[in-house]
Amino acid sequence: SGEEFIAMYTYESSEQGDLTFQQGDVILVTKKDGDWWTGTVGDKAGVFPSNYVRLKD
């Protein structure tokens, strides 16, 4: 389980282990570690910068 966040911006990365997503995607955040959080979008999982998302209303 985790908290749902909304992507405010598209995040694209070629780094292994990074979670890429489109603006407006719902991200289920499973771990918060400083500026880099872990989460899932659909069947993808990985880390992403926390300043790209906001808490879902």
Rank of each mutant, 00 (worst) to 15 (best):
K44C: 04
G34D: 06
F48Y: 02
K44R: 14
Q22G: 08
Q23H: 12
T40Y: 14
S14R: 13
R54M: 10
G34R: 09
D18L: 10
K32G: 01
Q23D: 07
F5M: 08
K32Y: 04
D25E: 14
E15Q: 15
S50C: 10
T20Y: 07
S50N: 15
L19C: 04
D57I: 06
T40G: 03
V47T: 06
S13W: 01
D43G: 09
S1Y: 09
K32T: 11
D57A: 07
T30L: 07
N51K: 11
N51I: 05
V41P: 00
G34K: 09
Q16Y: 13
T30P: 02
D33V: 13
D18F: 13
I6H: 04
I6T: 13
N51Q: 06
S13Q: 05
R54Y: 14
V41I: 14
T10W: 02
E4W: 08
S14M: 11
I27K: 02
W36I: 08
N51R: 10
M8C: 08
Y11E: 04
G42D: 10
S13H: 02
S13D: 03
G34Q: 15
W36M: 14
G2N: 15
V47P: 00
N51Y: 06
A7D: 02
D43M: 11
T10K: 10
E4N: 05
D35P: 14
T40M: 15
Y52T: 03
K44W: 05
D25V: 01
E3Y: 06
E4K: 05
Y52A: 06
G34A: 07
T40P: 02
K31D: 14
G24E: 04
A7E: 00
Y52C: 08
L55G: 15
T38S: 08
F21T: 01
K56V: 07
G39I: 00
V41G: 04
E4D: 13
F21Q: 03
G17D: 07
Y11R: 12
G34T: 08
S50Y: 08
Q23G: 07
E15I: 10
A45D: 13
Q16H: 14
M8F: 02
N51C: 09
K32D: 02
T20H: 10
L55I: 10
V26F: 05
S13C: 04
S14T: 12
L19T: 01
I27T: 03
P49V: 00
T30R: 05
V53A: 06
V41W: 04
G17R: 06
K44D: 15
G17E: 14
L19I: 08
D43Y: 06
Y11W: 09
Y11M: 09
D18Q: 08
G34Y: 03
R54F: 01
G34V: 02
G2P: 07
K56A: 07
G42N: 07
D35F: 09
F48L: 03
G46I: 02
N51W: 08
T30E: 05
T10N: 14
W36V: 13
G39D: 01
P49R: 04
F21L: 03
T20K: 11
I6D: 05
D25S: 08
T20N: 14
T38I: 02
E15Y: 11
S14C: 12
F21C: 02
I6Q: 10
K44G: 10
M8A: 13
F5W: 11
L28P: 05
V41D: 15
T10R: 06
F21I: 05
K44E: 04
S1C: 09
K31Y: 06
F5R: 04
G24L: 01
W36H: 06
F48A: 00
D25Q: 14
D25H: 00
Y52Q: 04
G17Y: 05
K31L: 06
Q23E: 14
K31G: 12
E15W: 08
W36L: 11
F21K: 04
G2Y: 09
D18R: 14
L19K: 01
Q16A: 12
E3T: 11
Y11G: 03
Y52G: 00
A45H: 15
N51V: 12
D33G: 05
Y52K: 04
V26K: 12
L19R: 01
D35V: 09
Y11N: 03
R54V: 15
D43L: 10
Q23K: 14
T30V: 07
W36Y: 15
S13P: 08
F48V: 00
E15D: 12
G46D: 00
Q23T: 14
G39C: 03
S50G: 10
T10L: 00
D33W: 01
V29H: 02
D57L: 11
S50P: 07
Y11K: 03
M8V: 13
G39M: 00
E15C: 09
I27G: 09
D57Y: 10
L55T: 12
T30D: 07
W36G: 01
G46V: 01
K56I: 05
F48D: 03
G2L: 06
G17A: 09
D57C: 12
E12G: 08
E4T: 04
D43F: 05
E3L: 07
K32R: 07
S14G: 12
E12Y: 08
W37E: 04
G24A: 04
D25K: 00
V29E: 03
Q16P: 14
V29W: 01
Q16R: 11
V29C: 03
Q16I: 10
V26H: 11
T40A: 14
L19E: 01
L19P: 01
G24W: 01
Q23L: 06
T10V: 04
S1A: 07
T10C: 04
Y11S: 02
N51D: 09
E4V: 06
G42H: 12
T10P: 12
L19G: 01
D57N: 15
F5Q: 03
E15G: 10
V47D: 11
K32C: 11
D18S: 15
L55W: 09
T38Y: 15
S50D: 03
V47C: 15
S1F: 13
S1E: 11
K56F: 09
V53P: 02
F5H: 10
E3N: 11
G2R: 07
E4M: 07
G42Y: 04
E3W: 05
Q22I: 09
G39R: 00
D18H: 15
S50H: 03
S14P: 09
E3S: 08
V47I: 12
S1R: 06
R54W: 10
M8E: 13
D33K: 06
D25F: 00
T40R: 15
E12H: 15
K56Q: 09
G46S: 00
I6E: 10
R54T: 10
I27D: 10
S14N: 14
D33E: 10
D25P: 00
K56P: 12
G2M: 07
A45E: 14
N51G: 12
L19Q: 03
E3D: 05
N51L: 07
V26W: 01
S50Q: 10
G2A: 11
S1T: 14
G17I: 07
G24C: 01
I27S: 04
S14Q: 15
L28S: 13
L55D: 07
G34I: 15
V53C: 07
G17K: 12
D33I: 07
V41Y: 08
W37M: 11
E4L: 10
E12L: 07
F5A: 11
V26D: 11
G24M: 00
N51H: 06
A7W: 00
A45M: 13
L28E: 14
A45W: 12
D35M: 10
G24D: 12
F21S: 02
G17V: 05
E12A: 09
K56Y: 04
V26A: 11
E3K: 08
L55H: 09
G39T: 00
E12M: 09
K56T: 11
T40S: 15
K32W: 03
A7S: 03
V26Q: 10
E3R: 06
E3Q: 11
Q16N: 13
L28K: 15
W37R: 03
V41Q: 11
